[in-house]
Design a protein around this nucleic acid. Structure first.
Lengths: 232, 232
DNA sequence: TTGTTTTTATGTTTTACGGCACAAAAATAA
DNA sequence: TTATTTTTGTGCCGTAAAACATAAAAACAA
């Protein structure tokens, strides 16, 4: 984790949340904000740690994951820029349940979470900013539980691919997912073994639903994917 | 759903949230609050409906559940008195994803959700009240996903039993769960078929981990249950 | 370059759990 | 009471997906 100096250039771009603050709050937050760089696969925070910061991903991509039974990892959420994360445990009065790891080189601004919490308890718009995000995430978490427990392997992988498209988008060609994941990460998103992620992705490729070139995945037939996601 | 009159007696007991309001807010909310009674298994709200109310369970017990793939129901959350529920979808700008159903005869106070939201956007303590609850629920939802997807049947049922104990408590004898669920409900909490819930509960009984008398379940050996929950 | 680790790929075996069928028992209704 | 529906309890069978094994390919290091 490398600390950097030119942070004030960035604070203006942390948009949605910053605009909810009073001038005084914005100023006092900017004084305690710190900028950090993470390399690919670098740990940002670890499950079990005590939360100290509110994180804002400025550039790059981040996964939030949980070690489950017998070292089986689950990717629970993924973060894109510009998105805030890492605040839930502090708000619930808990330590981190999840770890955050950079998918790719990432720049992150950190704010002391106790300061943010104190501000939220005085600034209803800031508090409501988090209400909306938590409410949305909770809905997604519940949906995800149903998906992961009730759909079959093909449906779960189809869901993961569509989710990645929705979240990180496509490249200029309009087909290629703009995030390149290992088969293992794909498996950890879809709650299956790596071997099954490989097999199922190959099956999709041979059915011309996707095209695979290493870690590049082209979604050739989103309608089929949606159907697989819904059906089985 | 039967509407009732003696609501003002109750509003004083809706404690934690009410105490966060200004005098004016408390007064104006009390004017629009309504009291409703639900019989056992009566629907309180249905998935797909547009949220209109904030619900507060005054007495009774409620399950929040989701119809999954092929009519397989999941019990996602359970509500005890006095607890607020049904606010998430409105806060996220969504319709209900879940249905709420009374486990047993229940009394519920309803407040118009748009009024509550308007108040929260002006009253940071009220907003923070929901932040804390949403943050806690989100943590539980994520944990639950790992449990349901990675643990085996015995572990999942053990979890459900311990969860029910934590949430609804025990009767005076110190052993009997103070909620009587059908095997089907137990299955829907643990993500398994009814037949497997019956089988596994019988297994626990023959191992003297629990004692079963109809729908009454005594937890004889919580340590074993915790161990089963952790191991598999 | 060559060696080493990681990732991808595919085949085989095993098993946990769902699906189905069918009683017995209990709850509810007539 | 008797009839009917719902819930509980077991057995058996099929299968989806994990576990295991092994090899090829790619990435990375020396």
């Amino acid at each position: 984790m490398k600390k950097d100096a030119n942070i004030n250039d960035l604070l203006g771009n942390l948009g949605d949340m910053m605009s909810l603050l009073t001038e005084a709050q914005r100023l006092s937050l900017s004084k305690v904000a710190t900028l950090h760089k993470f390399r690919k696969n670098e740990l940002i925070y670890a499950a079990g740690a005590h939360p100290e910061s509110l994180y804002c991903l400025v550039s790059g991509k981040v996964k939030i994951c949980r070690e489950g039974v017998g070292a089986r990892t689950q990717i629970v959420r993924v973060i894109r820029s510009i998105e805030y994360f890492g605040y839930r445990p502090a708000f619930a009065g808990e330590d981190f349940l999840m770890s955050a790891i950079a998918f790719e080189p990432s720049m992150i601004v950190c704010f002391p979470i106790d300061i943010v919490m104190a501000m939220a308890k005085e600034n209803p718009l800031l508090a409501w900013f988090f209400v909306e995000r938590l409410a949305t995430d909770l809905g997604q978490a519940d949906e995800r539980t149903v998906t992961l427990t009730q759909k079959h392997i093909r449906g779960r992988l189809a869901d993961a691919l569509l989710f990645l498209k929705d979240h990180y988008g496509l490249e200029e060609d309009g087909y290629t997912l703009s995030i390149y994941l290992s088969r293992e990460d794909l498996a950890n998103m879809s709650n299956m073994t790596t071997a099954n992620a490989i097999r199922t992705l190959s099956a999709f490729a041979s059915e011309r639903i996707v095209a695979v070139d290493g870690r590049k995945i082209k979604l050739l037939d989103e309608a089929r994917l949606s159907k697989i996601s819904r059906m089985g």
